[in-house]
């Protein structure tokens, strides 16, 4: 009857989204690619010339480059480790029958809704400040010298702040997954004589596998681009000690005015992100086949 019309209508309805995203993806990305082969500095915009692979070489030979890749991996890996393990622990705890579960949930989820600059500033000034922070107060209480977190352990400090922001996300997703575990399965395992520990290893953990994958992959997307937390706290320093790839590109582009160099870095970031994306696509894609 109307299948032809329906198809045409469906295409028409999808067109705005598809075209917008297509433009959004292709135009800036091809510009970045183009710039990455140019000598182009914003301080000297009249003098643009073809650079070949110079920008890539330059970026590659910059010692900050490898440090920033390493820092990126440390932030992603460190935060994932803390949030997944911590998330499982807290989710297991919240899955118990407790008084005031609703309020506990609300308190635990809250950090996720705090905007990154606020989170970073609060931790920087209220918690980790070497003279006025809560950590310093606690150290003094026990007679230790307060730690100057952002000078001594800049990367660790950022990992802690970002982990605090993402721990609620991991907890909430793992808790949701945990609550969908069939209680008859647990009872069957109990009847089979499985201890609480082996029930966790053989029943709960496999059940959580999918949720853990989702947590890891979604967080990775966001963690690769951690920016505001670094900007507000360490500004990438001391030196390049807490500069990740995203921050390095920002520095090169808007502080160094080096369009070519920043673009080369951008292309490298795209390649990195794509490697991660392939895995995410697979995992999420499976969910579509129902």
């Amino acid at each position: 009857m109307a299948t032809q019309n329906t198809r045409a209508l469906a295409r028409f309805m999808m067109a705005p989204s598809v075209i917008l995203l297509l433009v959004w993806m292709i135009v800036p990305l091809s510009m970045t690619l183009w710039f990455s082969f140019q000598n182009y500095n914003l301080l000297n915009p009249g003098n643009v010339s073809f650079a070949g692979l110079f920008n890539y070489q330059y970026f590659y030979s910059d010692p900050a480059f490898f440090q920033s890749i390493w820092n990126t991996l440390v932030i992603v890996g460190g935060v994932l480790l803390i949030t997944v393990i911590g998330g499982i622990g807290i989710a297991l705890l919240l899955d118990q029958p407790i008084f005031g579960q609703g309020i506990v949930r609300i308190l635990v989820i809250s950090p996720f809704f705090v905007m990154p600059p606020v989170a970073a500033l609060v931790w920087k000034n209220m918690i980790m400040h070497p003279s006025y922070g809560v950590f310093a107060d606690i150290s003094r209480l026990f007679g230790f010298r307060p730690v100057d977190w952002f000078a001594q352990y800049p990367l660790l400090s950022i990992v802690i702040i970002v982990a605090w922001q993402w721990l609620p996300f991991a907890t909430l997703i793992l808790l949701t997954a945990l609550q969908s575990l069939d209680s008859e399965q647990k009872e069957a395992a109990e009847m089979d004589g499985a201890s609480a520990f082996s029930r966790f290893i053989y029943l709960t953990l496999p059940h959580l596998a999918r949720a853990i994958t989702v947590v890891i992959l979604i967080q990775t997307i966001f963690l690769l681009g951690v920016y505001a937390e670094i900007l507000v706290t360490t500004n990438g320093g001391p030196g390049y000690a807490s500069t990740n790839l995203a921050f390095l590109i920002y520095r090169t582009a808007l502080l160094g005015y080096d369009v070519g160099g920043a673009s080369a870095g951008g292309i490298i970031a795209v390649i990195l992100a794509n490697i991660v994306a392939i895995f995410l696509m697979r995992a999420v894609g499976k969910n579509l086949d129902r």
């Binding site: 995203l21 970045t32 951008g266």
Partner: peptide
């Protein structure tokens, strides 16, 4: 494909 556009790192297109 739509989701994949979300994975494009923001810094990669900061300059343009």
């Amino acid at each position: 494909w739509m989701l994949s556009t979300k994975m494009m790192p923001a810094v990669a297109v900061l300059v343009p």
